[in-house]
Lab assay of single mutants.
Amino acid sequence: KELVLVLYDYQEKSPREVTVKKGDILTLLNSTNKDWWKVEVDDSQGFIPAAYLKKL
């Protein structure tokens, strides 16, 4: 599985998104959309702007 590093805090703005903190390491589930990547946070899944993430 691929991991990503969160570069900036992000507060979810819709139920399909997730809240993350700078420095979090998350599992990347889908990066086919260049603007929004799907990640797994704890036991939930959701989208975060790709610009907030860096592949490890």
Rank of each mutant, 00 (worst) to 15 (best):
K1A: 10
K1N: 10
K1R: 14
E2I: 13
E2Y: 10
E2D: 12
E2M: 12
L3Q: 10
V4Y: 05
V4H: 01
V4M: 02
V4P: 00
L5C: 09
L5P: 00
L5D: 01
L5E: 10
L5G: 01
V6D: 00
L7I: 08
L7C: 07
L7N: 01
Y8E: 13
Y8A: 13
Y8I: 08
Y8W: 12
Y8K: 14
D9R: 03
D9V: 02
D9P: 05
D9Y: 03
Y10A: 01
Y10F: 06
Y10H: 03
Q11W: 14
Q11Y: 15
E12F: 15
E12R: 15
E12D: 07
E12M: 15
K13R: 13
K13H: 09
K13L: 10
K13P: 05
K13E: 07
K13V: 08
S14M: 07
S14H: 11
P15E: 11
P15N: 11
R16C: 15
R16M: 13
E17R: 09
E17D: 05
V18I: 14
V18S: 04
T19H: 07
T19Y: 05
T19I: 05
T19C: 07
V20I: 05
V20H: 04
V20M: 02
V20K: 01
K21A: 07
K21L: 06
K21F: 08
K22V: 06
K22D: 02
K22M: 07
K22P: 03
G23M: 03
G23T: 02
D24N: 08
I25C: 05
I25S: 01
I25T: 05
I25V: 11
L26T: 01
L26M: 04
T27M: 09
T27I: 15
T27R: 13
L28G: 00
L28P: 00
L28Q: 00
L29W: 03
S31H: 09
S31D: 14
T32A: 12
T32M: 10
T32Q: 11
T32S: 14
T32D: 15
T32Y: 09
N33D: 14
N33L: 08
N33M: 08
K34N: 11
D35K: 13
D35I: 14
W36C: 09
W36G: 02
W37T: 00
W37H: 02
V39W: 02
E40C: 14
E40Q: 14
E40M: 12
V41Y: 09
V41H: 09
V41C: 11
V41P: 00
D42I: 09
D42L: 12
D42F: 12
D42S: 12
D43P: 03
D43V: 07
D43K: 11
D43Q: 13
D43S: 13
S44T: 14
S44G: 14
Q45Y: 14
Q45D: 09
Q45A: 13
G46E: 10
G46M: 15
G46A: 14
G46Y: 15
F47T: 03
F47H: 05
F47W: 15
P49K: 05
P49Q: 03
P49D: 05
A50K: 06
A50C: 08
A50W: 02
A51C: 15
A51G: 12
Y52Q: 05
Y52F: 12
Y52I: 15
L53H: 00
K54D: 08
K54P: 04
K55A: 07
K55D: 04
L56C: 11
L56S: 02
